[in-house]
Design a protein around this nucleic acid. Sequence first.
RNA 1: GCCGACGUAGCUCAGGGGUAGAGUACUUCCUUGGUAAGGAAGGGGUCACGGGUUCAAUUCCCGUCGUUGGCUCCA
Length: 649
Amino acid sequence: MSNQQINITLPDGSVREYEKGVSGLQIALSISEGLARNVLAAKVNGEVWDSSRPIHQDSKVQLLTWNDTEGKNTFWHSSAHLMAEALEALYPGTKFGIGPPIENGFYYDVDFGDKSLDGSELEKIEAKMLELAKLKSDFIRKEVSKKEAVAYFTEKNDPYKLDLLEGLEDGSITFYEQGNFTDLCRGPHIPNTGFIKSVKLLNIAGAYWRGDEKNKMLTRLYGITFPKAKELQDYLFMLEEAKKRDHRKLGRELELFTFSEKVGMGLPLWLPKGTLLRERLVNFMKKAQDKSGYQQVVTPHIGHKALYETSGHYEKYGKDSFQPIHTPNEGEEFLLKPMNCPHHCEIYKHKPRSYKDLPIRYAEFGTVYRYEQSGELHGLTRVRGFTQDDAHIFCRPDQVKEEFIKVIDLVLYVFKALGFEDYTAQISLRDPEKREKYIGTDEAWEKAESAIVEAAAEKGLQTVTELGEAAFYGPKLDFMVKDALGRKWQLGTIQVDYNLPERFQLEYIGSDNQKHRPVMIHRAPFGSLERFVAVLIEHCAGNFPLWLSPEQITILPISEKFIEYAEEVKGILEDEDIIGMIDNRDEKIGRKIRDAEVKKIPFMLIVGEKEQQEGKISVRRHGEGDLGSLSPAEFVSYFKKIIGESLKN
RNA sequence: GCCGACGUAGCUCAGGGGUAGAGUACUUCCUUGGUAAGGAAGGGGUCACGGGUUCAAUUCCCGUCGUUGGCUCCA
């Protein structure tokens, strides 16, 4: 028995023979020492294990390192334990909630009793963590009975762990121990604390035990760790960079938008430059939509309460919305529109439709108002009044796939023109176990779901499919973009809807002369202009693509003697729709250049005696410097060429 | 909505129980300059708002509003 061999299949498909009881780490060692040094955990038949845990059967094994998400998660989870160990050492009696890894790092919810922690103590904890990490304590897995586990945490007087234990079954309970710290934990963990080379505790926040505000508020400590000091530096640099790009900061500095307490929280005021940017985006989208067969419509900002009773929104969201507006005499109730689709349904209904009319695509830059919870408001990304680049496609069931493909094309065109190169699509399907949760027939769902999957595949989208993430009214496809700093944002969305056509009794006459129900597709490539502008600002750090830039050029006369010539140049450029101002302040050219650079104006056009005599302008590009001199006509064509490149389909 | 932190000039921030200060921006004057900050003078604040404590509050306490970090929610 002792010499029994097992077959281990590695991710590349190769099969190797090992002695029964071999661990992930031993497998790594057999491949290379370098790999062994970097192995954080092992994925055994789809389950992440400690790299030291013996494998007893033929298995598929993937060795996880820092380059794997699961490897990182294991690393950060172990880091949470290390932080807990440090906290217990520094503040004896601390009680522990949960300490999971998150997208960037980890947190631990802890109860310090009466003590409150202030920010200055974070460094002390970091230092303790590094000190403990140097001990290279092994993470030791122990299987314990529920009784033992309860006894341990009763003794330790930790109510949270006891609460967690209540939900666990005897026989599946494990402890992990490193150094002097023992935690209830499913694992897995990295081999020892020595892997953790750098630590940064990022912030402290309150969080209710189990996320329930009836429970006690615990202190949540967020941190991040890395296997190399350099990576921490890079991460901190990225955080700094993100701070510099914060759209709230740039929005103020570049005079794009503002907020006013008097107007109300979450209600953005667009300044002239921001409005110009917005209008460019709108015109860009209108043009693209015109080409794709959309028709623009306009609907009012309010709608009768009955409209939302029909749509079902009143029942579902009415209580949490802005309250209805009452007419003084008739006592009728109107709601600020939270969505455009009910209005669009009524447009569809204004006359009988034939199958030959479909698809009908109604587009509207519709401003909607939603009562978002006050704590959730954030710059332009989460507001109470915003404009969607909304459209609703009414089509026959057999047209869903084709319409999806068309919308995907549109979204990809938009992404390309705006410089979002890294994106994925999430397909949200229904939970096949809980079909009763969803409206619409099985047949319709199956058809729509496969239409989405096929459309995404045909367009070669990189997709993730989530079961159970569909809305109750239909499946959807959401686009997630990664910005220049690698942060993920959800932008465009395409959703199939079976609910509203039903509720509004939408119909068309089919070729069989019978009434049929159309399918509705909601779609918004930007999502909302507000949110999109916010993401765009952070993505390009305020250096907008030339075609969008609210101030494309600035003309800088060397001295006031050349203002007249500057005016002349400005006139020529304005005729070509190139927008900008003359900096006619009584300042030196160096100063004017600096100010224009700070304002991120793409082109500075310098005019002095030389330029005036030659009928030229000296062109300086933001962030690049002097490009030499051109005639205004040459500049116009150069300028238009740049714009043409980014907008070509 | 809940918990914590914060709120001083347009912006970034210092200060602190005796009614405020810097840098920058702004205005005026000098300077007429060649690719990232020329010089001088000046104006500007109910220290978020409302109460309380105090001889005296911008400062301490409470409340409100707003911002912010989280939690929860998101058609």
